[in-house]
Simulated scan of single mutants.
Amino acid sequence: MDGPDDEAWSAYLDLTRRRSEQLLDADDPYEVALQLMGDTANIFSIGEEFVGSMYALWGALTDWGELKPAGGARPRAESEMVRAAREWLALNPP
């Protein structure tokens, strides 16, 4: 496939890489994770295989931080957000 969907997917991968880098140093990883989830929602229309998984990942992590902030869950959730960003960057997507 070579066309608008390819361009959209490439732009999404680049944006996800940049957001992941931002998340590693963010004062509030939750806010950057929300942006990652929103970016992913915006790319659903191209039907790429992994979009749903990425959305589910960032949705679960942000829900964890938002819905269970008591008992130290938010810092644990944010730690997992940082881990997910590191793991994404380690994959070195194109």
Rank of each mutant, 00 (worst) to 15 (best):
A60E: 06
N42A: 13
I43M: 08
Q35I: 09
S45M: 10
A26V: 02
L61W: 01
E7I: 10
G38H: 09
T40W: 14
D14K: 13
V32H: 03
L67K: 09
G38F: 09
A85N: 00
T62C: 04
L89K: 02
L36Y: 06
R74A: 12
P4E: 08
A41R: 08
E21P: 08
D28A: 14
V51F: 07
S45D: 13
G3Y: 14
E80C: 00
P69M: 06
E31N: 06
G72M: 08
W88L: 07
W58G: 00
L15H: 06
P29M: 10
W9V: 05
P94Y: 03
G47E: 15
S79D: 14
Q35N: 07
W88G: 01
D39R: 10
R74W: 13
G38M: 13
A70R: 03
A41P: 07
L24K: 02
K68D: 15
A60T: 11
A11T: 09
L57I: 02
T16F: 04
S53A: 13
L34F: 14
S10T: 13
M54L: 14
I43R: 02
P69A: 06
M81Q: 01
S20P: 05
P93V: 10
T16W: 12
E21S: 11
A85D: 00
I43L: 05
E48S: 11
N92Y: 02
G71H: 08
D27F: 15
P94W: 02
D27S: 13
S79I: 03
L23E: 01
F50A: 06
M37N: 13
Q35W: 09
T62P: 05
D63T: 10
G38K: 10
D28M: 05
M37V: 04
A26I: 08
A56H: 06
I46T: 02
R74C: 12
D14S: 09
P93Q: 08
S53C: 14
E49L: 10
L89N: 08
E80Y: 01
A8F: 11
N42I: 04
